[in-house]
């Protein structure tokens, strides 16, 4: 397992290294796509996402990187969900790429169909992305997604994981974490919020399909995210990337905290950043400054009850999950953090 991901050039003399979006002291090749003046802005201004929406941010990060990687030859199929609704209220669109709205549950299948059509037409230069929310991916779209993996269709599927059905009013999905309040998992009773030991990890399930590439990424670590999208676009066959995208509305967090919350989710161990090829784990992004899960939870009203003394057992359960992740994925080196 490589200790330092390629995305994080370790430049000792350069003030911020590659932690910031750009860095005037770095060579152009080590700067991010987002730092360039000519990025494609695939998802442009005027969309109707809430203030500080992590999904809107993550989508521009990912699609701009994919555009760069494919020389702007890209088509996207998009499941129903916030990302579709806030970008394309008829007749306006915030997308500056060829983009098609599928149904809620069949983005993977539509993507597979586009890929097949392009193949039939001999347009191998044009690449395909299918994307959707966690509801559209882990629940209703799961059959289509598994089929796409199974057939190894030449599609990159991006799941924007905001851990619930946000567009319809914050209902629980199979990506909702234990303890979280949603409209359908209210904080009542002795185990308030979403039940523990339910749900699924689609990245691990994707790995079990032995597809060429699986990764998780977060909006707080742009270089890591761009590196993974770029890598995925350099591979043919079925690929899966899950982006962690905080939702201020659904999580009850400050719009200005979106990036911070992503950072804390990763730094506390609850959201491991990993890479896998053909079913084998090939990389993890190490924790740099570990924090207890409480630091992450306290910024979100969906977890407010977890921090009450009466529910200390829930806090313990969440910390135990983080600890398990840290151990399982070796998120912390023996000697300490990443640097």
């Amino acid at each position: 397992m490589p200790q330092i991901p390629e995305s994080h050039q370790k430049v000792r003399f350069y003030q911020t290294g590659t932690l910031t979006v750009g860095n005037r002291l770095l060579d152009a090749e080590h700067r991010s796509v987002q730092g360039t003046m000519d990025r494609s802005n695939s998802l442009d201004s005027g969309h109707r996402a809430c203030q500080g929406c992590g999904e809107a941010l993550g989508a521009r990060f990912a699609i701009d990187a994919a555009m760069r990687a494919t020389n702007n030859q890209l088509i996207a199929a998009n499941a129903t969900g916030c990302l579709e609704v806030f970008t394309t209220p008829y007749p306006e669109t915030a997308w500056s790429i060829p983009w098609i709205h599928s149904l809620f549950g069949n983005a993977a299948a539509v993507g597979a169909g586009i890929a097949a059509a392009l193949k039939a037409k001999g347009r191998e230069d044009v690449r395909v992305i299918a994307q959707g929310g966690d509801g559209g991916t882990t629940d209703i779209g799961f059959g289509c997604l598994s089929g796409m993996f199974d057939r190894n269709d030449d599609v990159l599927y991006i799941c924007y994981n905001n851990e619930a059905y946000m567009n319809t009013g914050v209902q629980r999905s199979s990506a909702t974490p234990g303890g979280a309040r949603t409209a359908t998992t209210m904080p009542v009773g002795k185990d308030p919020g979403n039940a523990f030991n339910t749900g699924k990890s689609v990245p691990l399930i994707a790995m079990a399909h032995l597809i060429p590439y699986v990764a998780t990424a977060s909006v707080h670590d742009l270089h890591d995210l761009e590196h993974k999208v770029t890598k995925a676009m350099g591979i043919h066959g079925a690929r899966y990337i899950e982006l962690f995208v905080p939702c201020p509305l659904g999580w009850g967090s400050k719009p200005s905290d979106t990036v911070k919350i992503s950072r804390l989710a990763v730094e506390c161990g609850l959201y491991p950043l990993i890479e896998a090829e053909h079913g084998e784990l090939t990389g993890v992004t190490k924790i740099r400054r570990q924090v207890p899960v409480g630091e992450y939870l306290k910024l979100q009203r969906r977890f407010a009850h977890v921090l009450k003394p009466a529910n200390a057992h829930q806090l313990e359960q969440l910390q135990a999950i983080a600890n398990r992740n840290i151990k399982k994925f070796s998120l912390i080196d023996e000697q300490g953090g990443q640097e």
Partner: peptide, 23 residues
Amino acid sequence: RRCMSCGNCFECDNCYGVCPDNA
């Protein structure tokens, strides 16, 4: 380069990058 440039933009591109609205 250890200087954090307190209070004075050092062109790190963060604001340009993290805006969800490309604003």
